[in-house]
Design a protein around this nucleic acid. Structure first.
Lengths: 206, 206
DNA sequence: TTATGAAAATGACATTTGTCATATTTTTAA
DNA sequence: TTAAAAATATGACAAATGTCATTTTCATAA
C-alpha cells in the first residue's frame, strides 16, 4: 500500500515514515511539507492514502484536502493533527476525509491506515468524544431513565419547546392546574427547581 | 487480542470467527446470540472487544451495549450491522460505541478491530456519508448576530444554566432588579416571552 | 354492583417573573 | 468642570409559577 505523508515538520514525517514502513505492508512513496506539495504529490503518485497535517504554513491541510477530493472524489485522506478543534473536525468530515486522529497516538496510525485502506473511516477517541455535542439530537430519548412516565415526558418536551402552562394544557387537553401538578412532580423527581432548569436539563441530556 | 461475537445468526458469527482467527492475532473467546448473552459474556470474559449485531431478538445490541458501557465505561464495543439507519448511528455514538460498520464489508472487519483495539473509533463509509447531515451548524456562539451585547449574553448564558434572577445577580454583582431589567430587554430583543423560552433558544442556536 | 386506585381538577397560597416608570450612580466627552 | 450618556437600581404591579391539601372523575377488577 502506498502512502504519502505531508507535514511541515520534517521530523514528524520521518518518524511516521519509519513507523509505517516497519509494518512491512506500507510504503511511503514520498513526503511533502505543505498543502501545495500535497496536491502536487497526490497527482504525481496517486497514493492509496494521503496522510496529512491540518495546520501548515501556506495552504492548510483542509484546503488542500478539499481541492484533492474535489478532483479525485475517491481520494483517501487521513488527517493527522495535534489539535482536536471542533471546527476542524466538522470541516474534515464535510470535505470527506477518511479520518482524523491525533499525532500523539503513535501506535494507532498504522492500524488506522489499514482501516481506511479497507474502506473505513477512523476517528481518535478524543475526537469521537466531541461528536455527540455536534449531532442534532433526536427526540428518541430514554425517559424511563429519568423515572418519569410517558405523559410526564410529553410535558417535559413541551416545556423545552418554551410553552407556558396554559399552552401545555391546551396542547394536551388538560387543565392548567393539572399541568402545574404534573410539573411539580417532574421537578421533584428530577430534583430541579423550576421549568427553566427543566428545559436546560432536557437539552443537556437529550 | 480477545473478541466476543454476538449475533442472532449463528452462521454470521461463525463466518466472522473464521475470518478473524485467520488473521492470527485475534482470538474469538466465545459467541453469543442476543443482548442478554452479550452482557453475561462480557462479564465473564472481559474481552478486548465486543463485536455485536444491533438488531437482535429480545434485548437489542444497543440496549445491551448501553448497559455494558454504563458498568464498564472503557468497554470497546463495535457494532456490526446490516442497516445504516440514522437513528442507530446516533444512538451508537451516544452510548459510546467504538464503531459501526456494515456486515457486508467482510474484509474490513479485522482492520477495524485492530483500529479499535488501538483506541480509534471506526465507521464504515456508508455510515460516514450520513454524518454531515446530522451535524449542527456553527459551534461558535455569535451573540452579536442576535443584537445583544456581551453583558446581556452573559446573562443569557446563566439563564441557560438554570439560575434564577437572584443567583444571576449574585454571580454578576448586580441587584436582582437590574438583572430583571436586563432580561426584559433581552426578551424584547429576541422576541421571546420568558426565561424558559430564552433557555430553549440558547440551546437551539448555540 | 361496588370499591379501589389512578388520572385529572380545584382552590389557596407564597414566590418568582416580567414590565415599566422613575431614580441614582458612574463614565465619558466636551 | 460640566453636561450628556450609560449603567445600575428601586418600587410597584400584574401575571405566571410551584406547592399542597383536597376533590372529582373514571375505568375496571373483584
Amino acid at each position: 500500500m502506498n502512502v504519502i505523508i505531508v507535514d511541515d515538520d520534517q521530523l514528524v514525517s520521518m518518524s511516521i515514515k519509519t513507523i509505517l514502513e516497519a509494518t512491512g505492508d506500507i510504503t511511503v512513496a514520498d513526503i511533502g511539507k505543505n498543502g501545495e506539495e500535497a496536491i502536487k504529490l497526490y497527482e504525481q503518485y496517486k497514493p492509496d492514502i494521503l496522510l496529512m497535517d491540518i495546520r501548515m504554513e501556506g495552504m492548510t491541510g483542509l484546503e488542500a484536502g478539499a481541492k484533492i477530493i474535489e478532483k479525485h472524489p475517491d481520494a483517501k485522506i487521513l488527517f493527522l493533527t495535534t489539535f482536536s478543534d471542533d471546527e476542524y473536525i466538522i470541516k474534515s468530515i464535510h470535505i470527506g476525509a477518511k479520518g482524523y486522529i491525533l499525532k500523539q497516538a503513535f501506535e494507532s496510525i498504522a492500524p488506522a491506515i489499514n482501516s481506511v485502506y479497507n474502506g473505513q473511516t477512523v476517528f481518535g477517541d478524543e475526537i469521537m468524544n466531541k461528536i455527540p455535542n455536534l449531532i442534532n439530537k433526536q427526540p428518541t430519548i430514554n425517559f424511563e431513565e429519568w423515572n418519569i412516565n410517558e405523559k410526564e415526558f410529553e410535558i417535559v418536551r413541551l416545556v423545552a419547546e418554551g410553552l407556558n402552562n396554559k399552552e401545555i394544557a391546551g396542547e394536551l387537553y388538560l387543565s392548567e392546574g393539572t399541568v402545574r401538578n404534573y410539573l411539580s412532580t417532574i421537578l421533584e423527581k428530577l430534583n430541579l427547581r423550576d421549568r427553566t432548569q427543566l428545559a436546560c436539563f432536557y437539552y443537556k441530556h437529550i
